[in-house]
């Protein structure tokens, strides 16, 4: 897998960011994309370690907490098989377009190539895979084939709420996501600035999730304008995300 000598032949390279004087004029993203040839060389740098630390996900060791199959899709990218790479990537990651932009890339921190040089540009490869798939229209709503007729309430529409909603919906449950704010996305929408993660990208994913059958209730705060008792009565299961405000242990309101 990968190119065994790739890490010796190619240097780590990231696409050039937009020049500072141009960036000053707007709030748009400043990271840019590589073309496939550049990207293949970066994928070739992956050494396909026998013990790949990049996806151990063990907090004491490092690596991807999602357990992304990084060496596998690096290899597929090296061979120019972006669509195959996308399939491997979405096996473990619900929203690569978010993580590929804002993840702190623990994988790169634990990459073996980084021991004596620069690590593989895992994060950049990830975002390239998913963005290419969006460009080519390959990311389409996946309507669940069967229904369990079970209703699940997910409180909080931040990254983890969306991920839970996505997985539960794919299992065939009827999912309703409660969001206190006027827009879906939580931290993604209200915490991360556009230059890192554009709101359009968040909305693009929310639209897909909606098409897949997830119901989003915005401006709805459980316990205030939607009673907790009602939620318990109407749903078979309740999923409260850690940071949903107003619950014990949740994120404290700062404003």
């Amino acid at each position: 897998m990968g190119k065994p000598t790739g890490f010796l032949e190619y240097e780590r390279q990231l696409p050039q960011d937009r020049p500072a004087d141009e960036r000053m004029k707007d709030w748009a993203e400043f990271h840019t994309h590589y073309d496939i040839e550049h990207l293949r060389k970066q994928g070739a740098r992956c050494m396909n370690c026998g013990v790949p630390f990049c996806h151990t996900g063990d907090p004491t060791v490092g690596g991807c907490p999602l357990g992304n199959l990084i060496p596998e899709w690096n290899d597929l990218v090296y061979h120019g098989k972006i669509e195959e790479a996308y399939k491997r990537l979405t096996k473990t990651s619900n929203f690569p377009e978010f993580t590929g932009r804002v993840c702190p890339a623990l994988c790169e921190g634990s990459c073996t190539a980084g021991m004596n040089g620069d690590p593989v540009t895992v994060k950049n490869i990830e975002v390239h895979i998913i963005d290419t798939m969006f460009e080519q229209g390959k990311v389409q709503p996946r309507i669940p084939q069967k229904s369990t007729e079970k209703r699940v309430a997910v409180i909080g529409s931040g990254p983890s709420g969306l991920a839970c909603a996505d997985i539960l919906n794919q299992c065939g449950h009827k999912v309703t996501v409660f969001e206190r704010s006027d827009r879906v996305g939580g931290l993604l929408m209200y915490g991360i600035p556009n230059m890192k993660l554009d709101k359009k990208i968040v909305q693009r994913r929310v639209d897909i999730l909606q098409k897949e059958g997830i119901t989003f209730l915005t401006d709805t705060e459980v316990g205030k304008n939607y009673s907790a008792a009602k939620v318990v009565n109407e749903f078979d299961a309740l999923l409260r995300r850690n940071s949903s405000e107003g619950f014990a242990g949740g994120r404290k309101k700062r404003c």
Partner: peptide, 14 residues
């Protein structure tokens, strides 16, 4: 050794 298991490929990174 980082258990790369590439002893046969002559590309041991350490």
């Amino acid at each position: 050794c980082v258990m790369m298991r590439v002893c046969n490929l002559d590309t041991c990174p350490v």
